[in-house]
Amino acid sequence: MSEKQKPGISGGWLVAPAMVWLALFALAPLVFLVTVSFWTASMFGLTSSFSLQSYASLAGDSIYIRVLGNTVKIAILTTALSLLVSYPIALFLASLKGKRKMLFVILLFLPFWTSYVVRTFVWMPILGRSGLINATLMSMGIIDRPLDNLVFNEGAVYLGLVYVYTLYMTLPIYLALDKLDPALIEAANDLGASAWQTFRKIILPLTLPAVWSGCTMVFLLCCGAFVTPRLLGGPSSQMFGNIISSQFLDAGNWPLGAALSVVLMVVVMLSLYLASRRFGFQSLFMGRH
């Protein structure tokens, strides 16, 4: 082995800050979360003796399973809807050149310079009873009284989630499309392929890793979402994140909240494991073949 290839002590030290960062901000909170899930809560605070009480109460109530199932369903559908919205946007951006491309990329990013909560809140004056849509429909004479079912239901949750997470899907697809060799598309055109054939046989297969990567990001974020269903959802469209947050913030039952978080993590990890078996780990997490 040459001197250049030999791993030196200095190389290890260079990695140390990243390792410390990971240990402090990723591993330690996870260990604490799992530990707390085996504690018990009372009106006097937490008791740090080992107990399976939280997991027992979780298993003994079917509502947790129902909400978990609903959460996974919402996450999958939101991911699919995001893909349907994002791919055409990414195609459009990739087709632009020069200043126009820069302008539209900035426009895409613009809403994401504000906070997640503000971007979710903004739907309320649009969808609400006295909101923009109702005002427009009434002024056009299409309806004579405001629609009261545009918000606070599952449909509004999908809309909110797709809106706030679209960028995480659009960006990797756009980058993959932008890096696509134009010669491949020209060659397909020269050989007489139609636009649809070029898309199906050249563009889509080459951007699939970016698609899976975007899907993974959106799915993960949706599984843990709680602000959007809280602000835009109705009583029956609450997600697992809402139950977890209510245990931590309202009920003061940290062990049950932690146990629910552990269950959610396990379900998400299992979903990603199954997806990586099907599509490959590199595709899901790195966005490449």
Binding site: M124, P125, G128, R129, D148
Partner: peptide, 14 residues
């Protein structure tokens, strides 16, 4: 009042 009365916007300005 009918169904689906919301807290924010309907009952009280946000």
């Amino acid at each position: 009042f009918g169904d689906n009365v919301g807290i924010d916007g309907d009952m009280m300005p946000l």
